[in-house]
């Protein structure tokens, strides 16, 4: 009863057991609350991914995103008014890009979106790409754009890597950040 640890009294075993029960109750209660609130949340996430391939994307939004391969994207990009959107980091975009693509990096989306919104209308067809197959940034940016009211979005599966693999043209002329800003 009077056991000490470094000069401080040591807790009784039964108190720890009671605390553990309370912890389990808190964990369970918060889980139930989270699941119930998720049912009514505007960005309701599927608890089990199933058909939706990416965590963090609600099913209703996933169904609005179109996916295509690099060759088909190339054909579609020839139509007037179609936008190619590079969502990779700015430094990678400045090194090389798909010709005529504009940059809206996922990291920094909130900062760059206002300029993007001035240039691109919400009805325009936008072809989005990022690094490669495992890169989920395209779907993430597509989700954000859908929430903001954009209606015609297509993700290029495999990104710029797939584009290069089928020998489609790449613009490898380096651009400085100042030139990129003034070009807008």
């Amino acid at each position: 009863m009077n056991k000490k640890l470094f000069g401080f009294p040591f807790i009784l075993k039964t108190t720890l057991i009671k605390d553990l029960a309370k912890i389990l109750l808190v964990l369970l209660a918060s889980l139930v609350l989270a699941i119930i609130i998720n049912l009514f949340h505007p960005m309701k996430l599927p608890l089990w991914l199933g058909e939706v391939n990416r965590p963090g994307i609600p099913k209703e939004i996933w169904e609005k995103i179109d996916f295509t391969n690099a060759k088909d994207a190339f054909e579609r990009s020839k139509a007037p008014g179609v936008i190619l959107l590079d969502v990779r980091d700015k430094k990678d975009y400045l090194k090389n890009r798909i010709p005529n693509a504009i940059n809206l990096p996922y990291h920094g989306f909130e900062n760059d979106y206002p300029n993007f919104a001035k240039e691109v209308s919400k009805q325009q067809h936008i072809l989005i790409y990022c690094y490669g197959t495992e890169c989920g940034l395209s779907a993430r940016v597509a989700k954000r754009l859908i929430v903001l009211g954009f209606t015609n979005l297509t993700v290029i599966q495999g990104g710029i890597k797939a584009w290069k693999k089928v020998n489609l043209p790449i613009d490898e002329k380096p651009i400085s950040e100042n030139a990129e800003k003034s070009g807008r």
């Binding site: 808190v26 964990l27 918060s30 889980l31 989270a34 699941i35 996430l45 608890l47």
Partner: peptide
């Protein structure tokens, strides 16, 4: 997804 839904509510509670 379930972790993303659960953890914030755990923090709040």
């Amino acid at each position: 997804n379930i972790f993303a839904i659960w953890l914030p509510w755990l923090e709040l509670v």
